[in-house]
């Protein structure tokens, strides 16, 4: 039925590898427990878009030219799905990066109109193109061709990627970013794009699949460091944090140790504690009854407020919560302070 050329074999192999990779990432994401962050829900859309892209990319290989396979309509539909899934993936990628940085639905809602405009334009153009071929078209031999407008189409959708990089860079300058690096995503994309330019094979699809898999690996790292019951970090994170402090990445200024009662349902306490702690701090479960909060930045007047709040929670939940705290002294090194305050060496 099909003429199988050398380049087609390569493209089918590449697309197949990418599709299998995406199926694997998709299944693992569904099986993985959530960290409860808003970005988690968007991540699934990124994967589904990438999966559709690879499957459509694989399928279209069997229906497009150079000597004509057809049916024509099916080839057009598959190529449309492929192109549109790239646009959709880039759109959701921007939302994912945004929520990973800001974890705020309100911030996103305030920008959504702006973000939606290119998406709506690209959707309309994609539909119009199916009937007119103003962006790309198949000739009589079912050979894929792009018009000059394709360049602008690409520019518009890749603007999402540029905005995502800009936001990441901007955020990173002002805040620490954990378990995420835009470059871990960008390097496979750039590798795939270069491969496609140089060899004319479906390198972008593979590069993109690897990039999404890297996103999955990065977000899974956080799951591995999170305690399922409390939602706070687990003891493995404590060790990593100590290494990071040694490397000078973080400088703790205040450590609070909590001793919680045995055999009680602590879920209420965990929820309340999350509500009173400032944004930039880490709470780590040492064991079932011992937790520690590490705070970075200025501590002036902070413990006064936190003491009141912890006591308020203890009274409200009728729980015997013991706690003590240590504030870093000028002469102490961050590592020395951290190890003494947390009680690890």
């Amino acid at each position: 039925m099909f003429d199988i050329s050398q380049s087609m074999i390569v493209d089918v192999d590449i697309n197949l590898a990418a599709a299998l990779l995406m199926v694997g990432v998709w299944i693992m994401t569904l099986r993985r427990r959530s960290t409860g962050e808003k970005a988690d829900s968007v991540f699934l859309y990124v994967i589904v878009a990438a999966l559709i892209e690879t499957v459509a990319g694989l399928a279209v290989e069997f229906f497009e030219g150079p000597v004509g396979h057809g049916p024509y309509a099916l080839a057009v539909i598959l190529e449309t799905i492929l192109e549109y899934s790239i646009t959709t993936e880039l759109f959701f990628l921007l939302l994912y990066v945004f929520l990973t940085m800001h974890d705020s639905m309100d911030y996103l809602k305030r920008r959504m109109k702006f973000y939606m405009i290119p998406f709506v334009i690209l959707t309309v153009v994609t539909i119009v193109n199916m009937f007119t071929g103003i962006i790309w078209y198949y000739d009589e031999n079912l050979v894929y061709n792009e018009t000059i407008l394709y360049f602008f189409y690409d520019v518009i959708r890749y603007t999402y990627l540029v905005i995502a990089i800009y936001q990441y860079a901007n955020y990173k300058k002002q805040n620490g970013v954990r378990f995420f690096s835009m470059w871990t995503f960008m390097i496979p994309i750039m590798w795939g794009t270069s491969l496609e330019w140089i060899t004319d094979c479906a390198g972008f699809t593979l590069g993109n699949a690897i990039a999404v898999a890297m996103l999955f690996v990065m977000s899974s790292q956080k799951v591995g460091f999170t305690d399922e019951k409390s939602g706070f970090y687990n003891i493995h994170y404590l060790n990593m944090l100590r290494e990071n402090i040694k490397e000078g990445k973080y400088e703790p200024s205040l450590v609070i140790n909590y001793k919680l009662p045995k055999g009680k349902d602590l879920s209420g306490f965990f929820n309340e504690l999350r509500g009173i702690l400032p944004d930039e701090c880490d709470t780590i479960k040492i064991d079932d009854t011992n937790f520690v909060t590490v705070i970075y930045g200025s501590t002036r007047g902070l413990m006064n407020m936190l003491s009141d709040d912890i006591q308020m929670i203890a009274e409200a939940l009728n729980m015997d919560i013991k706690y003590n705290y240590a504030i870093k002294k000028k002469e102490e090194s961050p590592v020395e302070f951290f190890e003494d305050a947390v009680g690890v060496k």
């Binding site: 509500g275 009173i276 702690l277 400032p278 944004d279 930045g297 501590t299 002036r300 407020m305």
Partner: peptide
Amino acid sequence: LLQYRSFLKNCLIKGRFGLLEDLGY
């Protein structure tokens, strides 16, 4: 009160006191 106190804590941690040395109090 909870919203106010949460914001103050973030101010304190970022060292933003405005004119108020005793902002946390």
